[in-house]
Amino acid sequence: MKCRTCGQKAVVNMRQHKLALCKDHYLEWIPEQTERFIEKYNMFTREEQILVAVSGGKDSLSLWDILQRLGYQADGLYICLGIDEGLKYSSESQRLVWKFAAEHGLKLHIVDIQKEYGATIPQIALKSHRGRVKPCSVCGLVKRHAMNRIARDLGYDVLATGHNLDDEAAVLFGNTLTWSGEYLLRQGPLLSGAPGLARKVKPLCRIYEREMLAYALLRGIEYIYDECPFSIGSTSIYYKQILNKLESDRPGAKQSFYLSFLDARKSGLFAEREEIQAELHPCPNCGQSTSAPGLCSFCRMMSR
């Protein structure tokens, strides 16, 4: 297979785009695509301060790499979750993030959940109803809260995460199976900011997970390959496998699923976003926006 641009041997073939590229042209193509989506969805400008949530995985480290290559002002935020039983997942992730930041001369903020809240994610999960079976839901809630707080307290304009198209399609698939209207309304490349809530963007939301892996490998980005021990057997991975089966038989199916959803919402299939935003209330404890009056989900969980 040959590179469509130069005719040299291709290293990545993207069936959904009918496009194969060599290493050099692939490493140009991914940042070009990312820039295209940043502009298309009005995510941020080069004048704004971006906080990138980096986990040590291929997607978030690659996003940070791409943004700095494109000339954006992007600092990193690593949240230490304290998941260190067995393979030392959090310690190794933190080492890789720190190494990447040091090698590229980038500014990195590190938040240690145990130091901030007195307990690690597995410990918080054990005490809460929502984390009794698996800590993933607690982990997501704590991370979202911490990311919002740091972005707000340090004055960042926008919070960027490394969610790729497979992540987005899997979430969409889950929410469609249950017709979770409120979640469907919130899902998208950009979530506008509100008082107490940072604007959130997903610059990689149109790029397949496999393509992000290829970018990380070809750029020589050292990332944590092992899964979080708690994610094994998770629903999101199961949905990704189902969608990849579909993609194998019908190239472009994942992309079409996600993009058709965005188009349908834009054309009015779902309610307008303003209806949700009008219902946001500040949490009396932390000040972050929440959909119902009273304490937000995070503060409710931590108060128990």
Binding site: M1, A10, V11, V12, N13, A20, K23, G57, K58, D59, C136, C139, D166, D167, A170, E209, R210, M212, L213, A214, L217, L218, Y225, E227, C228, F230, S231, S234, S236, I237, K240, Q241, N244
Partner: peptide
């Protein structure tokens, strides 16, 4: 150590390392 595309013809003695793309939780 080099990425190869799926049309590659495999030769005797080849060792192909597969890298999983899926992550998350």
């Amino acid at each position: 150590g080099e990425l190869i595309t799926e049309d590659e013809i495999l030769k005797d003695g080849d060792v192909i390392k597969l890298i999983a793309a899926i992550s998350g939780g």
